[in-house]
């Protein structure tokens, strides 16, 4: 059990780090656009890069932010019926329904990897006038999918443990750790 609990905590820590890092992308997104307004309005010299840059930053922000949101249970569900089930039943249901999560995010990883790889291989640029490199933003999708899947696996481990034993894995691990001391 200790290994599994350790894995869960490692993944959660990893996703916290990642999320808190990516969270700051919102500031350059904001500043780039303010800069564009200033250059165009005050100096009559709009940039060709501001909108595309802000768009890439925002794209990376939300796609990579997914795993952080998942780690903090920010993904909303309809709880009208769900909340009436006991914890163990919920865990059993989730073991089935979360196959949809794996189908979705798994396909996202499977299909985006060769696509991002191809972009890197040909050193793809954007078709815009500015024409920045495109592969860094394309790579955020497979990376986001990996972080998302890792976070999903921690949830499945928790559910499986609860379904089999009726106890929660993290609480159980804590108890074992205390017991060992």
């Amino acid at each position: 059990m200790n290994n599994l609990a350790g894995f869960i905590m490692t993944v959660e820590k990893l996703n916290d780090r990642m999320g808190k890092l990516v969270a700051f992308l919102v500031y350059p997104t904001m500043l780039v656009l303010v800069y564009e307004v200033m250059m165009r309005y005050a100096f009559g010299r709009p940039t060709i890069w501001a909108h595309e840059t802000s768009c890439m930053l925002y794209g990376a922000h939300f796609i990579l932010g997914g795993a952080y949101a998942l780690r903090h249970n920010a993904f909303v569900n309809v709880e009208v019926f769900y909340m009436k089930f006991p914890k163990r039943v919920k865990a059993i249901i989730d073991l089935f329904t979360w196959t949809m999560f794996y189908a979705f995010v798994g396909v996202m990883l499977w299909k985006s990897l060769p696509w991002a790889w191809e972009s890197l291989r040909v050193n793809e640029f954007s078709d815009s006038t500015w024409g920045p490199l495109l592969w860094p933003i394309k790579w955020t999708i497979p990376i986001a999918a990996v972080f998302m899947l890792l976070q999903g696996v921690t949830k499945t481990i928790k559910d499986l443990h609860l379904a089999l034993t009726g106890r929660e894995i993290i609480a159980a691990a804590d108890a074992e750790a205390t017991g060992g001391n």
């Binding site: 993904f75 909303v76 569900n77 309809v78 709880e79 009208v80 019926f81 769900y82 909340m83 089930f85 919920k90 249901i93 989730d94 089935f96 329904t97 979360w98 196959t99 949809m100 999560f101 189908a103 979705f104 995010v105 396909v107 996202m108």
Partner: peptide, 19 residues
């Protein structure tokens, strides 16, 4: 069905689209 079973909305839609 999936919404009623409490799966997060994003995964209901994305999962069904995939399948």
């Amino acid at each position: 069905l999936l919404l009623a079973l409490g799966l997060p909305v994003a995964f209901v839609l994305g999962g069904l689209a995939t399948v």
